[in-house]
Amino acid sequence: MAQWLTGKVVENYRWNDTLFSLRVVTEHFPFTAGQFVRLGLQGEEQRIQRAYSLVNGPHESVLDFLVTRVEDGLLSPSLDKLQPGDEVEVSQPPSGFFVLDEIPDGDTLWLLSTGTGIGPYLSILSTDAPWRRFNKIVLVHAVRHAEDLAYQAKIEAWQQQHPEQLVYQPVVSREQVPGILKGRIPQLIETGELQQSVGQAFDDKSQVMLCGNPDMIRDCKALLDSMGLKKNLRRKPGQVTAEQYW
């Protein structure tokens, strides 16, 4: 049974009208980069809760959650209204196996995400493990509009620190933006446009992590399977590991 910590909001940072980062402090707890907890608020009859990945690294004291406000959502509109000093409940212990410890070794680590699915990758990249284990890291973030491309400063800092190792490729689906690919990740893989843009190929030395929209995950898994990249299982290691957000 989950236990709950009382957290205090220290910042509600707005990326745009519907996308925000809720930053919270609680008593310290350990977690592995890529894991998630549940945020909860007391409703009239019961606690309303939802799972959110930790964007911050395990060594950071402020918990960071990337949230999209869903107009008819049960929790996100209330989280959107929280301000510094307000309280929010945080579940314990952290959960999930979308972590690098579950990923076999390889040459290239592909981090493919849509929307807030970039969150666990940012946590993973804040640790030493990916930089130590992989020669190349390709971070792909697909969103509807360019204004949804959050954490640009953090990503740019990593690019400056690891200029020969990290490739960042933003993708938008609903507008044309110079220097940014347009479309959906599966289509860009199928046409080879993504691989050409980042200068990397999908092969048996690749490890691919998928996080975000279920349609993206389903289509990418089928496409990658047809290219010879198989689902990663503990009993049978492969190249494709997925975390479905809903």
Rank of each mutant, 00 (worst) to 15 (best):
148 D>E: 12
111 L>M: 15
203 D>Q: 04
34 G>N: 02
208 V>F: 07
160 Q>G: 07
38 R>L: 12
168 Y>W: 15
111 L>V: 01
6 T>M: 12
52 Y>S: 08
222 A>V: 09
194 L>Y: 11
20 F>T: 09
87 E>F: 11
205 K>G: 00
48 I>F: 00
62 V>P: 02
223 L>C: 00
73 G>Q: 04
130 P>A: 02
18 T>Q: 08
172 V>R: 10
52 Y>Q: 04
215 D>A: 05
158 W>R: 00
170 P>R: 06
97 F>M: 09
36 F>I: 11
132 R>V: 05
123 S>R: 10
60 E>I: 06
83 Q>H: 13
17 D>L: 14
46 Q>C: 09
47 R>L: 14
155 I>R: 06
28 H>C: 03
201 A>T: 15
204 D>P: 00
126 S>F: 01
225 D>H: 15
219 D>E: 08
11 E>H: 15
192 G>Y: 09
61 S>W: 05
88 V>S: 07
165 Q>M: 09
123 S>A: 07
176 Q>C: 04
240 V>S: 05
83 Q>R: 14
226 S>L: 13
51 A>P: 10
40 G>I: 08
167 V>C: 05
120 P>Y: 10
43 G>Q: 02
238 G>T: 14
198 V>T: 13
155 I>H: 01
133 R>L: 01
227 M>D: 03
196 Q>W: 12
171 V>G: 02
201 A>S: 11
215 D>K: 08
120 P>E: 08
74 L>C: 07
23 R>C: 06
219 D>Y: 06
36 F>L: 11
119 G>W: 06
47 R>V: 13
80 D>G: 04
157 A>E: 07
16 N>S: 04
207 Q>R: 15
50 R>L: 06
115 G>Y: 02
50 R>M: 05
105 D>G: 14
32 T>W: 02
20 F>Q: 10
243 E>L: 04
158 W>L: 12
89 E>M: 13
75 L>K: 14
50 R>A: 11
38 R>I: 13
24 V>P: 03
